[in-house]
Write a protein that binds this DNA or RNA. Sequence first.
DNA 1: ACCCCATGCTCGGATTGCTT
DNA 2: AAGCAATCCGAGCATGGGGT
Length: 407
Amino acid sequence: MSFDATNWAIKQRGLRPAAKIVLWHLCDRFHPDHGCFPSQDTLAEDCELPRSTLNVHLNDLEAAGLIAREQRRSKGTRRQESTRYRFPFEPGFERQNAEKPGPETGHGSDEAVSRNQPEPCPENGESRVQNLDSNPVREPVREPVNLREGGREASEKNEQPLSDAKKAEAAFWRLVKNWPGFDGMPKEPALVVWMKLTDDEREQATVRFPAWLAMLKAQKKSHVPAPSTYFREKLWTAAPDPVEAAKPKSAVAGPFGKLWMATRFAELMLPHATNIPGPTGFEQAQIRAGKLTLAQVREQKLIRFGWPAVNAMHESAADRRPTHCPLALEEAASDFRQVHRDSPLFDAWMAEHQRRGWPTLDRRRVAEWIYFPSVEDGEAPAAGLERFVDAISDYLTTRRQGDEHAA
DNA sequence: ACCCCATGCTCGGATTGCTT
DNA sequence: AAGCAATCCGAGCATGGGGT
């Protein structure tokens, strides 16, 4: 599955609920390297819909330009195979839609570029494949735009806000002039989409472009999506914000695993929150009655409110939901060792928690095996914890500075 | 010839939610 | 409550191919 793809699916608006579910499951079956080709039976089962209804929604999604279907046949046997589904964020999708001549845009090469079977085809109406011209994503030019001299000239001297059309156009050319492979692409669709963005979106698209390119490179993507796709799908939102980029990168980690527990311990090693609520009226009464001491109340409050991030992790873990954990802790976490929840070592760890005033783990709500910093035979948990803290000292320093800065 | 596979499509009926 | 539209569902047929 692809988180990016499902994330994209969930952001689509204006679809019927069931169509959105179909799109989501399609994206769930999408693999960045291999594509997406679930059988209709599989998809229908995923969506808990009958196949007939599934087809209705597939048609809707195709008409909305959110998917393109491509029938496949086995090369050897010519037997029909499950349909391949393409998405707008895939390079092939863009090329099919952008270069196919349309009644309004009028652009496109003479040769067919669709990978669909030539017969039946969109033109003859025997719609076993998509009707490319029904794609509403590609919109007609609403205002004349100068694609050549005007834009380039302006780009040379223009440093003002992107508020009027000419300046926005200039910014467009500055951004795309070095776009990989843009020479051979049609320019107009990209410019049209660009002009529809808000000033703020154009700025974000520009600022984040280098980070986005770097991200593609890191992902070893061989193809850079066309500018029109980048603008239309707002792909820059997937790239780290230059400000946010300074923060540690994270990964999704399951509860009680190495990285999850390392994150939990790292959070506990940070200074606790200071906005701890005072005793409630009931607690004050209990203190007056001698049933509780003020210190006990404060201790309980600290456990409940002192490390909100840890409590949030505990809540997620109760629902078996993972947590985003900083990858900076991964190396230190690799030394963690499994501890059984019914073992004396687990008890010793919880005793260490209590000694430090930390929230403990409930034996009944944890996994059977939990990872803790490695502890030698006869050694107290505190020693293992100390080694872990040493190993992540840089991370903790950065976090403390970050928290101070944020405060 | 018959069956199978994977898909596209249509139809009538049921359900649901909204409006009057 | 009645009417209406949207949505969903199950059944069935068609297409284009392969396998036996």
